[in-house]
Design a binder for these strands. Sequence first.
DNA 1: GATGAATGAGTCTTCATTCAT
DNA 2: TATGAATGAAGACTCATTCAT
Lengths: 216, 216, 216, 216
Amino acid sequence: MAADTTIAKPAQPRLRADALRNRERIVAAAREAIVEHGAGSPLDEIARRAGVGNATIYRHFTDRRELIHHVALSVMSRAADQAESALAEEPDGFSALERFVHAAADERIGALCLLLSDGIDKEHPDLIATRDRLSADVEALMGAARAGGQLRTDIGVGDLMVALNQLTRPLPGSACVNFDTFVHRHLQLFLDGLRAPARSELPGESVTLQDLQQRP
Amino acid sequence: MAADTTIAKPAQPRLRADALRNRERIVAAAREAIVEHGAGSPLDEIARRAGVGNATIYRHFTDRRELIHHVALSVMSRAADQAESALAEEPDGFSALERFVHAAADERIGALCLLLSDGIDKEHPDLIATRDRLSADVEALMGAARAGGQLRTDIGVGDLMVALNQLTRPLPGSACVNFDTFVHRHLQLFLDGLRAPARSELPGESVTLQDLQQRP
Amino acid sequence: MAADTTIAKPAQPRLRADALRNRERIVAAAREAIVEHGAGSPLDEIARRAGVGNATIYRHFTDRRELIHHVALSVMSRAADQAESALAEEPDGFSALERFVHAAADERIGALCLLLSDGIDKEHPDLIATRDRLSADVEALMGAARAGGQLRTDIGVGDLMVALNQLTRPLPGSACVNFDTFVHRHLQLFLDGLRAPARSELPGESVTLQDLQQRP
Amino acid sequence: MAADTTIAKPAQPRLRADALRNRERIVAAAREAIVEHGAGSPLDEIARRAGVGNATIYRHFTDRRELIHHVALSVMSRAADQAESALAEEPDGFSALERFVHAAADERIGALCLLLSDGIDKEHPDLIATRDRLSADVEALMGAARAGGQLRTDIGVGDLMVALNQLTRPLPGSACVNFDTFVHRHLQLFLDGLRAPARSELPGESVTLQDLQQRP
DNA sequence: GATGAATGAGTCTTCATTCAT
DNA sequence: TATGAATGAAGACTCATTCAT
């Protein structure tokens, strides 16, 4: 179901077992650090969390940009996995959507905002491919719920994904107690607002993930 | 209606007119810079926006922490003003709440997350006073809506304020086109989720602004 | 006679006296350091020599490239000054050429090789202008000597300038005793080889300074 | 004719054929890399050129200093070979000198400046022996030319070797087009300056290779 | 014996803060 | 008082060298 996003260049001969383990630990540590302290987390801090020397990060990723790139790939890929599982396993359309939203939060999809970060190559094929996979998966989820008459019809994938991203972003500073469970309250409230029938008329137009990455 | 929050120490003799103007321009510039480029905006950048030399910032604020402190005060104070206006002028409870939410977004209440930032003295009396004023104002708004049977009863001030803060936080990088109007869609969807009758059961417990600032 | 090369952008309002002094000390220190330890001299070392903090270098030059750029300008400009003085004051064509060659060595023209360094913008207008001034001055010197029948006719400005640069480049490591006076022997031998009549036929073609900066 | 300079310690049992091949490839790669990108070439780059892993360098040379040491030995040894061939095969004294100078340039004798580099043990017996062999060979060449009345009498081995070294040093950055053939022009001009009768009086005193390595 | 991977020390660069005009 | 300039501490990145396979 899920493509393995940790292999950057299939051309590379082969990674030693311990090196591969390190690579994954670095991406995981980076995801946590970024989610906690923002995209500007010191690489030394990330290295410390991953239990490696700082220079090891540079053996795997040429620079900060590339590390962030891979974190974004990882987060989106895992979220897409969740979307696909939910769609396949939940009988009810809106339930699948709800399951996805809460699961994506647990997968730290708040790091999705990295997509918009200045320090990233938005044209990169891998990024576009993964973004489009996630986008299509969420579209499918929303389509199913809409088809069941459970989802209001005036919203698009971008509406959901941006709000999801924002609501799950970590608060700055060391997070407050139980923030994680707190987040699920907001997500649920937002989901309630998505249900049909619509309780209001929305301003503006809905947006896609692709639109969001356009430069002004 | 609104207390002037730009005067730090009433004991101070009095600021010259131009100095006061500078002070306010610095706070305004900082609010914009923080909202656009994140809490890590260089002070030189803020000074440039304010049209003053960098050292002038230090004449008004002892250090970065204090500047951020005053930006937080300013944002909360202006949001409280909006809450009070809405409550006074809108006949309908839920309408007042909606008006406040959208107005607060325009007041850059996304900078509210500074409240939780590490680099700030959360015990400062001014901060507590302003936070409590805002909190009370929002509580009044919610109370009115709840009294009219328009607002679900399982949510608290903290739920609203945190979600409001999160949904209006600037996206990293130079913001995408029309993000401002886009935000109002999310806010409206969230507001629709707040309406009575509740469409779901929420996990966890509601929280107050005061709770949020507690250390774990 | 000599243009002041230390003013980068005439648009800049004005530099404070002490800042201007620092700027010049930095360029001078960089010239010495580069001539002694190569173009890779640590900026901290340059700062130490100039008697300023390391960050001060960055106030004057955005990065290492720009500093090197200005050192190259300074060296070429001073060499051009020497060429112009020699041409104006020496009655004899070849004597003027000799005076220029030895004077350029004392001006550390060995740093001229910076022109070809990777870390420099070879298209920069200031650089091109100064290079062309120097080139024209040397051409004039050579033309006068050639007109007097004292200079062989099969050589060009590039021949002289590259050999001059090479022969005056500092030896790596801390220079040996009296290397400076030693260099003047090699220059004199080379000058003797330049005299008419030519004692050999040269391979290849003569080159201009402009040619040297072309990319392959 | 030429001693094999690639064997560091004759006491060593014996190198396997492939190990010996690797050793020689490393030295050759280092010579090329140093000549192209300067003495600071990364060891990883040298390993890549040699087609070996980086750690293999350390199996053959304890550290960077020792590698450079062997490169210097190799360059001097090959230059000495050229000097001996020229002396043996050319009937005319000055012609032999000319042949040697141009041949030495092609052997990258520009790397000779490594001799003076800080990162090298100037007291090492092998280095002294090879230097003295080269020095004696060049002295023989100059002696023959001087005996034929073709070489001016006010210059020594150090004059020739240093100028030869300097004129053939690679320019920094990626070299310009045809720099190799360009160098031979400068060498020829310099050689023309060496011919008797002397066209000028030289400043200072002539120097030997031994003198050059003395510490101040 | 050879290799890919890991590391710590060193360099460049930025920025909050202080100083001198 | 307000300002441009200076600074030290901190973060990104490179590279010689060591380690584990």
